[in-house]
Amino acid sequence: MDRIPILKMGDALLITIQVDMHDRLALALEEDLTAKIAATKAKGVLIDISSLEIVDSFIGRMLDNIAAVSRMLDADTVVVGMRPAVAITLVELGLSLTGVKTALNVERGMLMIQNRLRGLGDFSGRRS
């Protein structure tokens, strides 16, 4: 079965989701990522979903779970690059992913993680 690659960049892990994920792939990603955070002691997780054309409740739940699990493992999750149409639909669906931090793009997301690592407090201005 395909796996979604997880890249390590300094203290952070970067995942770029580029395919229309089927549900098993999403579950596999959740597991792989948990293992990888524990193994690398990563402090941040960046999930780039700018290629995703939809996020349904299943993927939404996966993002929520990843954020919750990584929080317990002392890592922060930032979801970046959600498209406007996807965001509108997700809100209409009834999912606001309140437990997930967000940023416009990978660069901004990385900055958020670094700021936190440098002890500049929690993500500036971003509700968690």
Binding site: E53, V55, S57, P84, I88, T89
Partner: peptide, 17 residues
């Protein structure tokens, strides 16, 4: 429209699941 496409595709995904 792009937003409406996304809405119907997402609805389809939920119901197919």
């Amino acid at each position: 429209s792009l937003v409406d496409q996304t809405k119907i595709v997402t609805a389809a995904s939920e119901l197919a699941r």
